[in-house]
Amino acid sequence: MANVNLTINGKAVSAETDDRTLLVEFIREHQGLTGTHVGCDTSQCGACLVLMDGKAIKSCSTLAAQASGSSIITIEGIATGAELHPVQRAFKENHGLQCGFCTPGMVIAAIDMIERLGPDLDEPTIRKELEGNICRCTGYHNIVKAIKAASMQMATQLEAAE
């Protein structure tokens, strides 16, 4: 058995699990946070993305034991109380989801790309960055629009702060 000690959405979690437990199983089944999805289970669709120490990684291709010692943020942990994260709000306003299954991964990927590449992203960059996220409703246009709107909004916020 592996001792897994990490924080999930700011909360310290300490648990004993099977060594082979995947991080996504740990999050969904042990912690009951079912917002993180298992789509393909073969590392291609990105529905299982979580932020590990600030970077979007595939929780279906990572063991819980590997993540021990890290800080994990899931889709449940990005809003501030009742106030949606700017990326969540942009998805809502731009109809960036149809069935919603891929959405948690899309939102996490969007947060990661905006933080890494800076605000005000152009469309080709967003599309290239979404290489690892699949939307089986094929609703990509509005997803790209939502990410662009969120990145522009974050640019405006940065300007206002200066």
């Binding site: 990105g46 970077k55 979007a56 990661d112 690892g132």
Partner: peptide
Amino acid sequence: GDPHVRYM
């Protein structure tokens, strides 16, 4: 791969 694979 993709950005998420490249992090790991």
